[in-house]
Amino acid sequence: MTTASVLGSGDEPIALDSAVSLVAPAAPVRVPTQRRYLMCRPTHFTVRYAINPWMDPSQPVDTERAVAQWTELRDTYERLGHTVELIDPQPDLPDMVFAANAGTVIGGRVLGARFRSTERAPEAEFYRRWFVEHGYRDVIMPTRTNEAEGDLVWTGTVLLAGTGFRTDPAAHAEAQEALGVPVISLQLVDPRYYHLDVALFVLDDRAARPLVAYYPEAFSPGSRRVLQRLFPDAVIATEADAACLGLNAVSDGHHVVLPVEATNLAAQLADRGFDPIPVDISEIRKSGGGPKCCTMELRD
């Protein structure tokens, strides 16, 4: 066995096994997988009511700019090789753009949504019809308040289920029965992060051990311990990353589409071998949403 030597703190030579490298290990090679998404053009987008801390009806909203930002988001997915399906926007439903809140699809089974706010309640039926009209046979509508992928995050092995502000805790058991996957409940405690998908997202759902990113302060102490146990290698977001809804991101296992302001998070992801794709979603953020809120994944 060959050895090399370096100088120690006292200038004495220290023998090193030649197999030991002083170079930091390279980031893992990340492999993207093609995805299929459902989105809704924000034709009628505005902020005329407040159902979360981000919404202020007194502030002006530029619908044309929101449409342009959404279009760039859709085009980004398509440039990355993903398929984007569209549902028709409906007048008087300005938040219908947030498709992620309207359904959870795993293995071709669909669990629809039941919104907490009366303003958004009609969206659920339009999305249910879309699924039926597009050949989905297992479409189940919940009896409990359930804001779909807003609070139900599929990791590839378990379904993380948020509660605290929107989704009823009893909806977690209903999701397990409807989708046939194990569910782990997580308690949200900061009203700014009213949905699980603005506090946590999945980076890699195809690995033997899923990888996620999250903001610990959005969760109760017990839920933080659960996350630490489940995901010891998680990417931990800063307060600044969370505050621009940087965790409302979409990953295909390699490319991560996230708000342009989440610069520290983007740097962390690059260090882990991911390719951050920043997008400007600032106008749509006035309603408390980002890339993920606009994107329902169709896992057929």
Score class of each variant (00 low, 15 high):
R299C: 05
G150E: 10
R30W: 04
T145V: 15
F231T: 03
M55G: 06
S185V: 11
V23H: 07
P89D: 12
E64W: 08
D75Y: 09
H44C: 03
F231A: 07
V105K: 01
R224P: 01
R137G: 11
C244A: 09
W154M: 08
T167H: 04
P122C: 11
A27W: 08
Q34N: 05
P122Q: 11
A15M: 12
G273R: 01
F219A: 09
P142V: 02
H134V: 10
A243E: 15
A199R: 01
V256A: 03
A26S: 12
W154T: 01
L111F: 07
R48S: 15
R120A: 09
R74A: 15
D56E: 12
L188E: 06
V189G: 06
L73P: 01
P232S: 04
S9H: 12
V181N: 02
P259S: 06
E64M: 10
T33S: 13
P42N: 08
D92S: 14
D204S: 03
V256L: 06
D168Y: 13
E283F: 10
Q228W: 10
S282Q: 14
A121P: 06
R120G: 05
D205F: 04
D197S: 13
Y215A: 08
R35Y: 08
R116D: 13
V132S: 06
V67M: 15
R299I: 13
E12W: 12
M96P: 10
P53V: 10
G290Q: 03
D151S: 03
Y194K: 04
P94L: 11
V235F: 01
S220K: 05
A171G: 12
D75K: 12
R65Y: 11
T155D: 06
P13A: 05
A124H: 07
A207R: 12
S220D: 15
L298K: 09
G222S: 09
M39K: 06
V256M: 04
A170F: 12
A27E: 07
L111A: 01
D138W: 11
K286I: 01
V31S: 11
A270V: 00
L80A: 06
E133V: 00
E147V: 09
G150H: 07
R206T: 15
Y37K: 00
V226T: 15
P191C: 06
T163L: 06
Q176E: 15
P232L: 04
P182C: 07
P210S: 01
L298W: 13
T118M: 13
G289T: 03
L203Q: 00
L80F: 06
V198E: 05
G108L: 10
Q176Y: 00
F219R: 08
L7I: 03
E261V: 00
L93A: 07
L211P: 02
P259D: 09
A161C: 14
V20D: 08
A242W: 02
I284A: 02
T46D: 15
K286Y: 07
I184Y: 04
G253D: 02
A68T: 11
A100T: 08
E78P: 05
W130C: 03
L245Y: 09
G273T: 04
L269V: 02
L93M: 14
G81S: 08
P142T: 01
A207S: 15
V158Q: 12
Y77Q: 03
V183N: 08
P28W: 10
V153W: 01
V158E: 13
C294E: 09
T238F: 09
P32M: 04
K292Y: 15
V6K: 10
L247P: 00
I184N: 00
I51C: 13
M55H: 07
